[in-house]
Amino acid sequence: MEEAKGFVRRVLLLKFKAETAPNHVERLIKDYSNLVNLVESLKTWHMGKDANIKNLHEGFTHVVELTFEDDEGEAAYSAHPAHLEFHERAWPHVKKMVVIDYKPTSFHT
């Protein structure tokens, strides 16, 4: 195994509250995606909706993957005013969230 140098990835699983209208969820996702334009240490932002045909999502409907330049970049993102403002607006609509941060690892066989 070889851990990648520098980059840190974050995977978020999001479950929104039932009373949050779908168009509001979409607006929040669009606003969230814009953070890649506002926070220098956030290098990539990708999102997808659950497409599992076996209904194993446990209510989580959206997955977001972020890439940061390094641990310090992730810390800078977490404290960035644009991220904090977005979090303030979005958090009341989130029922549950799972967050996993990892450093990409390559396996060579």
Rank of each mutant, 00 (worst) to 15 (best):
H93R: 04
L35C: 00
E65K: 09
D70W: 03
V64N: 09
K49S: 15
V64C: 07
E72Y: 09
L14V: 04
D50Q: 10
H57C: 11
V11E: 02
S78Y: 06
A21G: 02
G48Y: 12
K43C: 04
E74T: 07
K49C: 10
E72V: 08
H83R: 00
H83A: 06
E74P: 00
D71M: 11
H108T: 12
H57G: 14
D70P: 01
A75E: 13
S41D: 11
A75W: 09
R27Y: 06
K95N: 15
V39N: 01
R27W: 09
E69V: 15
K49A: 10
E74I: 03
F7R: 09
K95F: 11
D50W: 05
V98A: 08
A75T: 06
H80N: 01
L14A: 01
P104L: 05
A21I: 07
E3L: 15
E65L: 08
A4K: 10
P104T: 07
F86A: 02
V11F: 08
Y32G: 00
K49I: 13
D70K: 02
K96E: 15
T105Y: 13
A76I: 08
T67A: 14
G59R: 10
R9V: 07
H80D: 06
E3Y: 09
T109A: 09
L84Y: 00
K5R: 12
E88I: 13
E58N: 15
D31A: 09
A75Q: 13
H93Y: 09
V8P: 01
T20V: 07
M1E: 09
Y102E: 04
L28E: 04
K54S: 13
F86N: 01
D71H: 12
V63R: 04
K5S: 14
E26G: 01
W91D: 13
V39I: 15
A18V: 13
A82E: 07
S33Q: 14
K103A: 08
R27K: 14
K15I: 05
V94M: 06
L66F: 05
H24S: 04
G73R: 08
V36A: 09
Y77Q: 00
D70V: 00
V36M: 07
Y32A: 03
A90K: 02
Y32T: 00
K30R: 14
A18P: 02
R27T: 15
G59Q: 10
V99R: 03
E58Y: 13
V98Q: 06
L28A: 02
E40Y: 03
E65C: 11
F107A: 07
V11H: 12
K43S: 07
V8D: 03
V99S: 14
Y32C: 00
E26W: 02
P22F: 08
F60K: 11
A18F: 05
S106E: 15
H93F: 05
T67F: 08
L12F: 15
F86S: 00
F60R: 10
F107Y: 12
E58D: 15
N37T: 07
E26D: 13
V64I: 15
M97Y: 04
L14P: 01
P81C: 05
N37E: 11
W45V: 08
L35F: 03
H24N: 03
S41L: 00
L84E: 11
V8S: 02
L38T: 04
E26L: 13
E88N: 05
W91C: 06
M97N: 00
E65F: 11
